[in-house]
Design a binder for these strands. Structure first.
Lengths: 208, 208
DNA sequence: ACGATATAGGACTATTTAGTCCACTTTACT
DNA sequence: AGTAAAGTGGACTAAATAGTCCTATATCGT
């Protein structure tokens, strides 16, 4: 059985796909914990138990690997958020979504920040392709938030003139900024506070 | 004439201080544009026109240089924000503060993000001392914002039960998250939108 | 079954990078 | 003026790192 290689459409056997996935999985973990710049290809090889030629067989180089990691992280985050937000249509549901993110982040005392946000701020100024991919992912994530707000609007909870997309932007920014402040303070509190402020704002709009 | 060396109290001549400052200035620029990880000591030497022994005379190594850069950036940002926010006591003044940040960021189309925020997300998980310094700087910056809100409260614009510190946290998070989204999108809009949302929230609290 | 292609292992190279060392010059202070 | 400390220049080393190359094995399509 063969499948298309995400990189260049080259044929890929089941075995090859598995090796490729192992490389990406190891790189994803390392880059999340150590950062992209501090993760060497040798680190990835050691963690995945794969040889160098295999890495270069599947990826043109470090940049290509980083892009594969972004795709991988993005896919997981978007899927997670789609499940978490896809059917939310109440402010209460939005608060539950907040609780999950806050509690997960609290487990690491804020360390490492948002998987997507950390990648974005490290890579955006260096690799245009990676930046664009991250930009699309943020847009998609934000679209899920906007979807929730739109449902609130459709249910009459938010007034028709509420600018759903701008609220979603503000919520995403508060989330990402909160992640970053929590990472710097090694304390999840600022992240929780920032999201709460936006949710309070959204709630206040519904009480007119 | 001699002054205390910021690093270890060693005596420092005017000439030495000048060399040290040149190193820090070059490193600051490079690390802002290229990122900390992608900036090599050789880059710093080339940009500052200084020899390697001088760099190691003034700093114990790259980590120490990064910390000096953080102090330098922090000092400039805090001074800038102190001037911008120190005497603001109206929402109108807060909007003008917003305009300056947005316009400055628009000049680079969002690139590089916040000088402090970019350092924070790259360094926080790698160097505890640097993280703590950045955490103190964010707290100081946020304190300036809280000062503005407190003045609004004292003037009766914000109600006495408004949680000024939490609003300042939310504003800082939106600002930082906005910087990051703008950097990823290469478009200042999300940053402007995020701050505007928080300012709208603050304004809505004043209309009770 | 068999040729073609994908996959695997790992030694090897060239370059970059942090960090060291030492000879020499300038400055501060009495 | 003299001397000790600070400052300077740059060659040098060791380690790390990205990337190449060649050989061998496994798998696929026919």
């Amino acid at each position: 059985m063969t499948t298309a290689d995400p990189r260049n459409g080259r044929r890929l056997t089941a075995r090859g796909a598995k090796t490729r996935a192992r490389i990406v999985a190891a790189a994803t973990d390392l880059m999340y914990v150590k950062g992209v710049g501090a993760t060497t290809l040798d680190d990835v090889l050691a963690a995945s138990g794969v040889s160098k030629s295999q890495l270069y067989h599947h990826f043109d180089g470090k940049d290509a690997l980083v892009r594969a990691v972004i795709d991988n992280v993005g896919e997981r985050v978007i899927e997670r958020e789609r499940e978490a937000l896809g059917h939310v249509s109440t402010i209460r549901g939005l608060r539950r979504w907040r609780d999950v993110l806050v509690q997960n982040n609290a487990l690491r005392h804020g360390a490492y920040g948002c998987a997507l946000g950390s990648l974005a701020s490290e890579v955006s100024d260096h690799d245009a392709l990676a930046r664009e991919a991250l930009s699309r992912l943020f847009a998609e994530w934000q679209g899920l938030l906007a979807g929730v707000l739109r449902r609130l609007q459709d249910d009459g909870v938010l007034p028709p003139d509420a600018s759903v997309d701008q609220l979603a932007t503000g919520l995403m920014a508060a989330l990402q900024g909160g992640y970053m402040l929590a990472q710097t303070a090694r304390d999840v509190t600022p992240m929780a506070t920032a999201i709460d402020m936006v949710l309070a704002h959204i709630e206040s709009l519904s009480k007119r």
